[in-house]
Simulated assay, not measured.
Amino acid sequence: MAAGFQTFNTNGTYQVDGVYKHFVMTRRVDIATTETTGGTSVNGSQVGLAKAENEIIALRCNSPCAHIGTLDGQIYVRTTGPIGTVISCYFFAPITTSDATVGLQVFSESGELVFCASKKPLSFRDFVVGEGIFSYESSRTFAALMITQRYEVSDIVIPAGTQGGRLFRLIAARRGMASNASGGISVSYEVDFQDMSDIAGSPGPPSQACTSPFGSLHALIDVTNY
């Protein structure tokens, strides 16, 4: 920018600019799952909660969890844990106003508030690709913001004679999920849904198999004391 306010940290990393709005935490919701995900062999559960159009969400849970979709203003989050598993949801949105009476505030040339020191910022620690344990400072607390999700649905016909002489169809889904780890997060590829159906006659060829074109990509968000 030709004029205005900018800050950098000691490593020279750009932090605040008078042109770009910061994302700040609008709310934290610790919510327990309320319904099972279905299937015959997976004890997973999920819950829906309201989400504004301009909000993004980072998740933290002791069991593997993921954002699975948004419908009619509701965001749905799922975990491999049973009903009652608590998922911490951190919502972030572009800053609009602040009632702070002390601290630094930065406004754009058009008068819009773009930064306020009293607001908890969306603080990225890292971007992690694939599955594994990603650990950093043990004294910090992190949540995972899903950018892309590794997802696969398999559809297998089990021939007659292997299950009591009848045909069966096994439909299963796996997805990349994140869970708590010491000083970071763990990303794992979990069985999300599994169902075996007893089929009379010929079921025809499998029809529901699919694989997402991308792997798991998560942003690691520092939510210490949030």
Rank of each mutant, 00 (worst) to 15 (best):
Gln105Pro: 06
Val129Asp: 13
Gln194Ala: 15
Thr141Met: 08
Phe127Gly: 11
Pro206His: 05
Arg174Cys: 04
Leu113Cys: 11
Ala200Val: 14
Arg150Lys: 15
Ser182Asn: 09
Ile199Ala: 02
Ser179Phe: 07
Glu152Leu: 07
Cys116Pro: 02
Ile133Met: 10
Ala181Thr: 06
Ile156Ser: 12
Ala143Glu: 00
Lys119Cys: 13
Gly165Trp: 01
Cys116Gln: 03
Leu104Tyr: 06
Ser154Ala: 14
Arg125Ala: 09
Leu113His: 08
Cys116Asp: 15
Gly201Tyr: 05
Met177Arg: 01
Ser123Cys: 09
Val153Thr: 15
Asn180Tyr: 11
Phe193Gly: 00
Phe115Ser: 12
Val128Gln: 12
Met177Leu: 01
Phe107Pro: 04
Arg125Leu: 04
Leu167Lys: 12
Pro205Ile: 06
Phe124Glu: 13
Tyr136His: 07
Asp155Ala: 01
Asp195Gln: 09
Val114His: 03
Thr148Leu: 02
Val153Phe: 04
Val191Thr: 11
Gly164Leu: 05
Val191Glu: 11
Glu131Trp: 09
Gly111Gln: 02
Phe193His: 06
Ser110Asn: 14
Ser154Val: 08
Ser123Lys: 13
Gly161Phe: 03
Lys120Met: 10
Arg175Thr: 05
Val106Gln: 03
Ala173Asp: 04
Arg140Glu: 11
Arg174Ser: 09
Glu190Gln: 15
Ser139Phe: 10
Val129Glu: 15
Ala160Ser: 15
Ala144Asp: 05
Phe127Asn: 10
Ser139Val: 11
Gly164Arg: 01
Arg175Gly: 02
